[in-house]
């Protein structure tokens, strides 16, 4: 019994530690929110005033109306959702191919896929720009979406996760006559739900925050995305940081909601995998 109590105490100490460190992780975010409610002159004021007095709620509508943010958010949604769906679909299939099939040249193809992750965007930008231009995709949604879908991170991620999925499950499905596509979509995907969702959340995060590519290929204001809008607060010699923080706070909400949803589905994924025995 005393040993159990000691373990209990240890456990709660651990919980406290995790929660405490959570506060440390959270502090900069709180500063961001607090700054979004301050007048410009106080944004970098030290020592920090966590609760602005009085909070400038007007910063939010002001920032929102300073540029056409409703449009920018709509564009960001369209682009992020399209990229996420396409990338999860195609990268998932490619990762499955690399993990659960054997074919000639597989190793070389895998290494080639990985190599596309290793060059920084700065050197690929101009050549990619030329390709997109020749496709007539400058200033279009296709231009914002398709080149971004072509990202190997998802392939690698799905391959690695699927490697730890027992082959027996895949084989059983094939023997049941599920067919190759059926096996993938009806058996493999539900079984690796946590992996699929992880990829989705990462792809969304990446696209939602992307700046350089949309900035380069879009010159039409009606196609601009949120990060470009954020950058517009950075004027030549002054940045309205409170506006940047206000829009950023708003921009984080969809991600936070998505993450909540994602966590619940996580648990569903586990339940399914238990069922599937």
């Amino acid at each position: 019994m005393p040993a159990g109590r000691r373990q209990d105490a240890l456990y709660w100490c651990g919980v406290l530690l995790v929660a405490g460190w959570g506060l440390v992780q959270l502090a900069p975010i709180l500063w961001m929110i607090s700054t979004s409610l301050k007048p410009l002159r106080e944004v970098f004021a030290l020592p920090i005033q966590w609760v602005p007095r009085p909070p400038q709620w007007a910063n939010y509508p002001e920032a929102w109306n300073h540029f056409p943010f409703a449009r920018y958010f709509a564009n960001s949604f369209i682009v992020s959702a399209s990229v996420t769906v396409l990338n999860v679909l195609l990268a998932g299939m490619a990762g499955y191919s690399l993990a659960k099939y054997r074919y000639f040249g597989q190793r070389a193809l895998f290494i080639a896929v990985l190599s596309t992750l290793m060059l920084p965007i700065e050197v690929l930008m101009v050549p990619t720009f030329l390709i997109v231009k020749s496709l007539g995709w400058l200033n279009t949604y296709q231009g914002l979406v398709i080149p971004v879908v072509a990202d190997a991170f998802g392939i690698f991620l799905m391959r690695q996760y699927l490697l730890s999925l027992p082959d027996s499950l895949v084989e059983a499905a094939r023997i049941d006559g599920a067919g190759e596509l059926g096996t993938y979509f009806r058996i493999v995907v539900p079984l690796s739900w946590p992996a699929v969702l992880t990829l989705a959340i990462f792809t969304w995060r990446e696209t939602w925050d992307a700046f350089v590519w949309p900035f380069i290929i879009i010159t039409d204001d009606s196609l601009r995305t949120v990060p470009i809008g954020l950058q517009r607060f950075q004027e030549q010699y002054v940045t309205t940081y409170n506006s940047v923080m206000a829009i950023s706070t708003v921009a984080m909400i969809p991600m936070v909601l998505l993450f909540f949803f994602f966590q619940r589905a996580f648990i569903r994924g586990i339940a399914l995998s238990g069922l599937k025995e």
Binding site: P28, I29, P227, L230, V244, S248
Partner: peptide
């Protein structure tokens, strides 16, 4: 814990 990973890079 996940929040820092989704803060916009500018922020």
């Amino acid at each position: 814990y996940f929040l820092p990973a989704i803060v916009p890079v500018v922020v």
